[in-house]
Amino acid sequence: MVAGRRTIRFDDAGRRFNARVAGLALREGHLLIHRTVHEPFWTIPGGTAEIGEDSRATLIREMHEELGVEVSVGRLLFLVENFFHFEDRDWHEIGWYYLMKLPMTFPFYADRRIVHEIVDGKNRLEFRWVPATRSELERLPLPPVFLADWIERLPESTEHIIWDDGAL
């Protein structure tokens, strides 16, 4: 985080609140996912919002920082109240999940190989494309897991979802 910038995340008695923005990038029937290499699960690319920053600006900033590209932010698909346990604390996360379009210059391989890697602070992130199907997403550890139910029929208008993933 740059000096003067402050993320919308705080801790309280073993719990954490987080404001997260993520983007579903689709290409040729595939979805872009990423993970921090030391963690056993994948997620939708995105990051924590900052105070004074709207959610679309967060997604644009995060993708520029992580992918080095300018994305086009589409419609808001999901507003998610996500509850889960991770890293010895209970999380309450508000998540904005947008459709987003990557430039065609961003690498695409349908064979699940890593298409992009970056060190983000102390974490090494890797990105890959996977088939955007319910069966594929159900096979992955990809929280929040409700996404598998929706991936083949994305909503036409924003869906509000309250989800409890339990322990990660």
Score class of each variant (00 low, 15 high):
1 M>L: 10
3 A>M: 02
4 G>Q: 03
4 G>E: 04
5 R>T: 10
6 R>N: 03
6 R>P: 00
10 F>D: 13
14 G>V: 05
14 G>K: 06
15 R>D: 09
15 R>G: 08
16 R>A: 15
17 F>C: 06
20 R>T: 13
20 R>E: 08
22 A>R: 08
23 G>S: 09
23 G>Q: 10
23 G>L: 08
24 L>P: 06
25 A>H: 03
26 L>M: 12
26 L>D: 03
27 R>K: 07
28 E>Y: 02
30 H>G: 05
30 H>I: 11
33 I>E: 10
36 T>P: 00
37 V>D: 07
39 E>D: 14
40 P>C: 00
42 W>C: 04
43 T>V: 15
43 T>R: 14
44 I>Q: 03
44 I>K: 01
45 P>F: 03
46 G>A: 06
47 G>K: 03
47 G>F: 05
47 G>V: 12
47 G>N: 08
49 A>D: 09
51 I>F: 12
51 I>C: 02
52 G>E: 09
54 D>S: 00
55 S>F: 04
55 S>Q: 10
57 A>V: 00
58 T>R: 02
59 L>G: 04
59 L>T: 05
61 R>Y: 05
62 E>V: 11
62 E>A: 05
63 M>S: 12
64 H>S: 12
66 E>K: 15
69 V>G: 05
69 V>C: 09
69 V>L: 07
70 E>V: 10
74 G>E: 07
75 R>F: 02
76 L>G: 02
77 L>Q: 02
77 L>C: 08
78 F>V: 05
78 F>K: 01
78 F>N: 01
79 L>F: 06
80 V>L: 01
80 V>A: 01
80 V>M: 01
81 E>S: 07
85 H>P: 00
85 H>S: 13
86 F>N: 05
87 E>T: 00
89 R>T: 12
90 D>Y: 07
97 Y>K: 08
97 Y>F: 13
100 M>I: 09
101 K>G: 02
103 P>K: 08
103 P>E: 09
104 M>H: 05
104 M>A: 09
105 T>S: 15
105 T>N: 04
105 T>M: 05
106 F>G: 06
106 F>V: 04
107 P>A: 10
108 F>A: 06
108 F>V: 06
111 D>E: 11
112 R>W: 12
114 I>E: 02
115 V>I: 14
115 V>D: 11
116 H>Y: 14
116 H>R: 12
120 D>Y: 11
120 D>Q: 15
122 K>A: 15
122 K>T: 14
130 V>W: 09
131 P>Y: 05
134 R>F: 00
134 R>E: 12
137 L>G: 04
137 L>Q: 07
137 L>V: 05
138 E>K: 08
139 R>Y: 04
140 L>E: 03
141 P>S: 14
142 L>N: 14
144 P>K: 08
144 P>E: 09
147 L>D: 05
149 D>W: 02
151 I>G: 09
154 L>Y: 09
154 L>N: 03
155 P>T: 04
156 E>G: 14
156 E>S: 11
158 T>K: 13
158 T>P: 01
158 T>S: 10
163 W>F: 15
